[in-house]
Design a protein around this nucleic acid. Structure first.
Lengths: 242, 242
DNA sequence: TTGGATTCCGTACAGCGTACGACGTAGGGT
DNA sequence: ACCCTACGTCGTACGCTGTACGGAATCCAA
């Protein structure tokens, strides 16, 4: 045996102080805890001190395993992206793209912090796998790699845009129980806006707010259908649906 | 004279010292300076201290005109949204939606900070005007307000998603001079990813990276065309293009 | 056993948003 | 002409952030 295994019941390594958690501090455990915090309390709650404390470890220890906070955030994003991977993409390209889009949307809605730090490239193994899977599905429609890319990115972009609006709406507690009454509620709450709305400058908006609104998920499905219809018309001009 | 102006060479006071700027401090001037900083140096450079200093004013003075930093950010967003308003939406719905989409995209690309703080609702007068204008254009296609909303949001969402990807790519200096070689460059730079790519697990991705990629703007135009085609097929089933 | 590399982490610093309270001045009532 | 209230201004201070630095503890190979 070695010196470390000599002492009994040891959960940890270097010294052995803090909590119960140590054992092997690794990049994975750090990312896992960060994800936990982000999911539970939002992105702002994820601080290096907080993550370290939750691991029973000194703050600066994290920097042995992760270069930056920025690096940690990118690792979190790639970990999330693993959720975007589908076990079965179905029989054809349209089914496949639809499933991927739905799955991605669900994932983004479940983890709002992902889009909050959305501008960064965040290129990791899982992102690569996600792109590969999408391209594979699109290859059922065209063999041109550039066209595959255009298709895949278009779908992805729509998903991201929809999810973003939905999360913004959710931030003002819309969509429950009446779809997107949040917009109306927000306008009613702010006297300036309410006045503006009733100024007669906004006839279409007023009419829209007067009626019920479609749920966000319905709007998403409709938009996705439209986009896929357009794609289909380009690559399958004589298809029955197109 | 007043007591404060008595002593010479004074850098400040309640009275009127600091730089050249005071005169009338107003919400508008604060927002204008914040926009200037954000455009020039990015969102992180926008701090209350910085804005105040640039106005020759004490930091806390800003809080007389703006409730929060959050409120300031929302005011910035609405100010930006004024750029999304079109003077002439053109003769028909398709032209109108296309112009609005292009204009919005250009604006978002010019001011990357906007999407960086994208999750917040940011409902201001200009946002209202933007929605109204889009709805008005869509009313040339259908009189159903709910359908107008679905259409308008779908287009907007696509624009936002595209802009986001484009800005992320720009962050790793892609798209110049070869389109999206940034992805390839990024993968080449990171040994882990390069190894992964050549592992044979990513045939489609590898093939895609081998060829040239379409420019982001081409992908945007294509995706927009697809989406509009799909919309047209729903509401103008017997149109010549559909 | 020893020596070097690796891991851990206490301290310190600069920057952030903003609560609090003091201060100078302007305008209106007397 | 007086005061007095209200308001715009902003210095100071607090708690938070990310992280540079350097020392201590530990591990592994020789």
């Amino acid at each position: 045996m070695n010196t470390t295994s000599v002492d009994p019941a040891r959960p940890r390594g270097a010294g052995d102080r803090p909590a119960a958690s140590r054992a092997g501090l690794s990049r994975e455990r750090i990312v896992a805890v960060a994800l936990e915090i982000a999911d539970a309390e939002g992105l702002d709650a994820v601080s290096m001190r907080r993550v370290a404390a939750m691991l029973g470890v000194g703050t600066m220890t994290l920097y042995t395993h992760v270069q930056d906070k920025e690096a940690l955030l990118e690792l979190m994003l790639d970990a999330l992206t693993s959720e975007h991977l589908l076990a079965d993409t179905g029989p054809d390209w349209r089914t496949g793209l639809t499933r991927i889009a739905r799955l991605t949307r669900q994932s983004l809605l479940r983890h709002p912090w992902a889009l909050a730090l959305g501008l960064r490239p965040a290129l990791g193994p899982n992102k690569l796998r996600h792109i590969e899977q999408s391209l594979a599905v699109a290859s059922g429609l065209t063999t041109d790699p550039a066209a595959q890319r255009t298709i895949v990115h278009a779908v992805d972009d729509l998903v991201v845009g929809c999810a973003m609006r939905e999360l913004a709406a959710r931030a003002i507690e819309a969509d429950v129980p009446r779809p997107l009454c949040g917009l109306r509620r927000r306008i009613d709450a702010e006297p300036t806006l309410r006045e503006l709305l009733h100024s007669g400058e906004f006839p279409h908006l007023a009419r829209m707010l007067a009626g019920d609104a479609p749920f966000a998920s319905e709007r998403f499905e409709q938009a996705l259908t439209w986009l896929l219809d357009g794609i289909e018309r380009t690559y399958r001009p004589d298809s029955p649906t197109a």
